[in-house]
């Protein structure tokens, strides 16, 4: 069972792509518990990918703090500290076509982390580790000397997963890991991610726009809108009792593979609006948080 201890703690995280610009992520706070999957949902441009990239320091943090296992990673300045952190926190990207170096063999792509962090004594051990990783993600180890273009989209995403697992991380940001894949392949990759999570006790930040899939994989979720988290809580609870008008609108728009439901559905519209600067997260029920204005109304 889950240990109720935070592995990642995010406090007032903000990112601006340019000085003076509207922040892409504004004053976002949440924590991810050891061994859980925290899902981030929201429309494109809401800041979920920016948030994910800051958590593994692929993007600079404009203000705010990110603690990983108690260590303030926003304060990391030296290369050595960064190396140590990167070994523990990895990322899987959305596009399995763009995220693998086309001139490298699969074995060298997967072994990158092993090489950088000197996790193997010698060449033989390194190659054995890669073979092991390939096997566990469902790739044939004898394909190790092939190039990425020789693999299908689903297989490439498996390569991306093996690469992330190579450093034996504790935390992986999964940034839309299945949206570029076909329906029949999506389920394979999600099953693989879940299996590895159980086997290795991994903690995930799962970013996606497929709301049914996010609900399926996540223990808790955060709903982002215009750079803010507007609602956060246990996935079952948020989907069953959404409180924020944006969440309600979003969930009412999920297409369901059921004609009778689709014919008779009504969607809840959401009027786009600015979120007040002074809005804060308020707990509305145990573990369920809502972004509210100073009068206690959903912001």
């Amino acid at each position: 069972m889950r240990v109720e201890k935070s592995l990642v703690k995010v406090e007032h995280l903000t990112h601006r792509y340019a000085a003076g610009a509207t922040p892409a992520v504004a004053d976002v706070s949440f924590d991810i518990r050891q061994g859980e999957t925290f899902g981030l949902v929201g429309e494109s441009g809401c800041g979920k990918t920016t948030t994910g990239r800051m958590l593994v320091r692929l993007l600079g943090i404009t203000s705010g703090r990110v603690y990983f296992d108690g260590q303030d990673i926003s304060a990391i300045r030296t290369r050595l500290e960064m190396l140590a952190f990167r070994r523990q926190a990895q990322i899987i990207f959305q596009d399995p076509y763009a995220s693998l170096d086309p001139r490298k063999k699969v074995i060298d792509i997967i072994a990158e982390g092993i090489d950088v962090h000197h996790l193997a004594e010698n060449r033989r051990e390194r190659n054995e580790q890669v073979a092991c990783l390939m096997e566990s993600v469902g790739l044939r180890p004898d394909y190790a000397n092939r190039f990425p273009h020789e693999f299908s989209g689903g297989q490439r995403q498996r390569i991306g997963i093996a690469r992330a697992l190579a450093t034996q991380p504790r935390f992986i940001v999964c940034d839309e890991p299945i949206s570029a894949l076909d329906v029949s392949i999506q389920a394979q990759v999600v099953n693989l991610l879940k299996d590895e999570q159980h086997k290795r006790g991994l903690t995930y930040l799962f970013i996606a726009h497929d709301l049914s899939m996010v609900k399926y994989v996540s223990d808790r979720i955060g709903v982002m809108y215009r750079g803010r988290i507007v609602e956060m809580g246990d996935a079952q609870e948020v989907y069953a009792h959404p409180q924020h008008p944006y969440t309600q609108s979003l969930l009412s728009s999920i297409p369901r593979p059921d004609p009778d439901t689709e014919r008779n559905r009504s969607r809840i519209p959401y009027e786009k609006r600015e979120i007040a600067q002074d809005a804060t997260m308020i707990q509305v029920s145990p573990g369920h948080y809502l972004l509210c204005d100073p009068h206690g109304r959903p912001a």
């Binding site: 299908s152 689903g154 297989q155 076909d182 329906v183 029949s184 392949i185 999506q186 389920a187 394979q188 999600v190 099953n191 879940k194 049914s212 899939m213 609900k215 399926y216 079952q236 989907y239 999920i254 369901r256 593979p257």
Partner: peptide, 24 residues
């Protein structure tokens, strides 16, 4: 059957997804 079963509904939880094995 495989297509319908491989996507989670809002009520799917816990159990593994029923993926269609292999690739086209």
């Amino acid at each position: 059957w495989g297509l319908l079963a491989s996507m989670p509904t809002l009520n799917t939880s816990g159990e593994r997804l029923r993926a269609i094995p292999g690739t086209p």
